[in-house]
């Protein structure tokens, strides 16, 4: 995974690991798309470079159809969606997610897992 210097970092790039400042506080979680506001935050905290997903790595992960199914906002990265799906698959271990009702509960659980993410702006899970 490429390491990008701060002056080359652009909105839309996705950190592949948590961005942590010197005292250990997490500034941006992995998988959250970099937004304009993050650039100044990183600069303020003296971060000089971060590790991001490469172009090919993020393109390959989620299909358009899959994203539509969860109807989550555009700024949510594929990586975050994939993390949420993995987390929910674990939580639904006692259930068969192929049953239509359970499938809908699972879909909503993924939506709320993303919505409850501390770095995500609240949105309506539909």
């Amino acid at each position: 995974m490429p390491i990008i210097k701060l002056n080359k970092l652009r909105p839309g790039m996705i950190p592949s690991s948590n961005v942590v400042e010197l005292n250990g506080r997490t500034l941006i979680l992995s998988g959250v798309k970099i937004q304009e506001k993050h650039l100044s935050i990183l600069k303020k905290w003296g971060i000089t470079q971060i590790e991001v997903y490469g172009e090919d790595e993020k393109e390959s992960v989620v299909t358009e159809e899959e994203r539509d199914k969860y109807s989550i906002p555009e700024q949510i990265s594929d990586a975050l969606l994939i993390n949420a799906i993995e987390e929910c698959s674990h939580l639904f271990k006692l259930n068969d997610v192929n049953v239509p009702l359970t499938k809908e509960f699972f879909r909503l659980a993924v939506g709320y897992t993303i919505r409850n993410h501390p770095d995500v702006e609240p949105f309506d899970v539909t």
């Binding site: 006692l94 049953v99 359970t102």
Partner: peptide, 9 residues
């Protein structure tokens, strides 16, 4: 409960 309980479909 760690997991989502079994859903009584």
């Amino acid at each position: 409960e760690h997991y989502i309980p079994q859903i009584a479909v």
